[in-house]
Lab assay of single mutants.
Amino acid sequence: HNLTITQGKLFFHYNPKLCLSEIHKMEEVSGTKGRQERNDIALKTNGDQASCENELLKFSYIRTSFDKILLRWEPYWPPDFRDLLGFMLFYKEAPYQNVTEFDGQDACGSNSWTVVDIDPPLRSNDPKSQNHPGWLMRGLKPWTQYAIFVKTLVTFSDERRTYGAKSDIIYVQTDATNPSVPLDPISVSNSSSQIILKWKPPSDPNGNITHYLVFWERQAEDSELFELDYCLKGLKLPSRTWSPPFESEDSQKHNQSEYEDSAGECCSCPKTDSQILKELEESSFRKTFEDYLHNVVFVPRKTSSGTGAEDPRPSRKRRSLGDVGNVTVAVPTVAAFPNTSSTSVPTSPEEHRPFEKVVNKESLVISGLRHFTGYRIELQACNQDTPEERCSVAAYVSARTMPEAKADDIVGPVTHEIFENNVVHLMWQEPKEPNGLIVLYEVSYRRYGDEELHLCVSRKHFALERGCRLRGLSPGNYSVRIRATSLAGNGSWTEPTYFYVTDYLDVPSNIA
């Protein structure tokens, strides 16, 4: 807008934040220059609390790290170098490059900038070799853009010569660093050979998330399962459950009422301010606690030095998902009996873990797994792929695949051998790939016309006998059925096997 004052003059007093240069501009645009008398524009009460600059400061050096910015700028000295009290560095987070010096300023003089007072450097006698002032900004957020400017702080001049310097606002972004852990990993099994893994992005990506790394490792069953005799009275049979499938998407929606109208769909109840505040506090606490764990609990591995020492970490090797089922080394339970199943799973520490690289999504279907087997899954978020990966501390989750139908069934015939004193040795093959492992066998036998009897055969007993022995049988026709019990439950009964026990007292003698 054009402003013209045809008559009258300007009068400025007691404006401590208004620089004289701005008042002189007002004289020019209003056409009143030359009308004012000496005392109409006070030299001592206008701009006496402001830094009124008329020179431009330029930054000469900028260096960044993930949490620091090192700045240096060209030296500046007023005509009387004693008038320079120091520099004021202003900075704040700036997602967009549209910041002005006066953003967030209120009537009390406060604003949204963080201000650092910096002492002037030592003055050199040689004007050509003056030290460049600077400042190291610490405690910054990774991968965050900051708006920065600097200006001088000078003393009051009796001659009211307006001098000083100020830089333009520059924008500097800190470097990326390792992201925080992925949030809320959930693993479920939808079949006997697959596990579905879902997660949420890290709360602090500290860069642009480029991919996720998912490692999985087959877990050995508890050692007590191999040692305890679950045929003993009072000892509860062990059981394991597989990871249940995901709930429906509708039930997972946030901010939804727990109660549904019987007449149909209901609208979600909005969260109160107290609920939102509580969630923010919980989120802040979780982030602080995660940072504490990362800094205190997890110790970084030592990389190899120039002395030739090897990095103890196993090298990563990509495998196809079809090879995942046989990740671990199978060892027989008892070496003397080769027909026992290889369900003991000690994992070799030198073995390469299978892994998958996930790009542009937060889910993965891990296939080719062994049925009813526990897996430990390790999830890392990465925001750099080359020249070397920059990934987060791992988040861990466990899951067990679903049982395989008929995996616990005894394959092959049940054979028998009759000894003296009416002892019958029953023999059968253990299931080759049971659900988890076989903890015991149930032997059901009966003599024709009598009630059915049951015998429990422990895992250890089966390994020693290759089956079991029935003792003290009365003469007669017998039928026997056997079924295995694994961590997933009972298998199917075998087809009945028949044998006849004679009275050993009636056996004919070869003595003449």
Rank of each mutant, 00 (worst) to 15 (best):
Y375L: 06
V296C: 15
P332Y: 04
D261N: 12
V457K: 05
L505W: 04
F499P: 01
S492Y: 02
E227M: 14
P244W: 09
G325D: 15
Y375D: 00
N477D: 07
Y441C: 02
F215I: 10
G374N: 12
P314S: 11
V424E: 02
S251G: 08
R240S: 13
D385T: 02
A399Q: 11
A394C: 10
P349C: 12
E378W: 09
D250R: 09
N421S: 11
G489A: 12
E224L: 05
R301A: 05
H294S: 03
Y212K: 00
V397M: 13
A394T: 11
S223A: 11
L321P: 10
N208S: 10
S344V: 08
E356Y: 12
Y230K: 14
R370E: 15
R313E: 15
Q384L: 05
E452F: 14
G322H: 06
T343C: 05
S257Q: 08
L505M: 04
T272L: 10
T497R: 14
E465D: 05
E279K: 02
R301F: 02
K432E: 13
I276L: 06
S341I: 06
A399M: 13
E265H: 10
P332I: 09
T272K: 02
D408L: 02
L437C: 08
G472T: 06
P403V: 07
F462D: 02
F462C: 02
E249L: 09
N206S: 06
A407L: 10
L364G: 05
I418P: 07
S257I: 04
K406W: 11
K357A: 12
S320D: 09
S348A: 14
G489M: 09
K361A: 09
L453C: 04
Q384H: 07
I209W: 03
Y212P: 00
K236P: 12
I418Q: 07
S320G: 14
K271T: 09
Q275E: 09
D222S: 10
L455C: 12
I410G: 02
S305T: 13
D229N: 14
E465V: 14
R218P: 13
S320K: 14
A330D: 02
R318A: 10
Q429L: 10
S239P: 10
V443M: 05
R447A: 09
M402K: 15
V501Q: 03
R459H: 15
K361L: 09
N360V: 11
N435D: 01
P434W: 01
G476T: 00
S262V: 12
E451P: 12
S479F: 03
T502E: 15
S344A: 07
D323G: 14
L487V: 07
V327D: 11
D385P: 05
E378H: 14
S341N: 15
C468S: 03
V439W: 06
F298D: 10
L235M: 11
A220G: 14
H425Q: 08
C456G: 01
F285M: 15
E433F: 15
Y498W: 06
V480C: 15
N206P: 03
N477K: 08
P475M: 08
V414H: 01
D503I: 00
A407P: 02
I482F: 02
C266G: 15
S479N: 02
P300E: 09
L470V: 14
L437A: 12
R353Y: 12
Y292Q: 03
G476K: 00
S243G: 08
E258R: 10
S320H: 12
P238H: 04
P496F: 09
K460Q: 08
A463M: 11
S492G: 13
V443W: 01
T502D: 04
P238M: 07
P434K: 04
V501R: 02
V299R: 15
Y441Q: 01
A463W: 10
E258A: 11
S248T: 06
G476R: 00
C391K: 02
S239W: 14
E221D: 05
N422Y: 09
P434V: 10
G449C: 05
Y448H: 10
S341R: 06
S458P: 05
S509P: 12
A336H: 14
F337V: 10
S268T: 15
K317D: 13
G449P: 10
S283T: 07
F285K: 12
E310L: 15
T307G: 13
S342D: 06
T494S: 13
G436F: 08
F462W: 13
D323W: 14
V507H: 01
F372L: 05
G449V: 00
S348P: 13
I366D: 00
D229T: 09
P354L: 12
S257P: 13
H461N: 07
L235N: 07
P496A: 15
E350Q: 09
E356C: 11
R481H: 04
V457W: 04
Y500M: 05
R218D: 05
L455Y: 11
I418Y: 06
E217M: 01
R318T: 08
I276G: 09
L321H: 07
P300F: 14
C391S: 01
H461E: 05
S268G: 10
C266D: 13
Q252T: 11
E221A: 01
V334G: 11
N421Y: 05
L237Q: 06
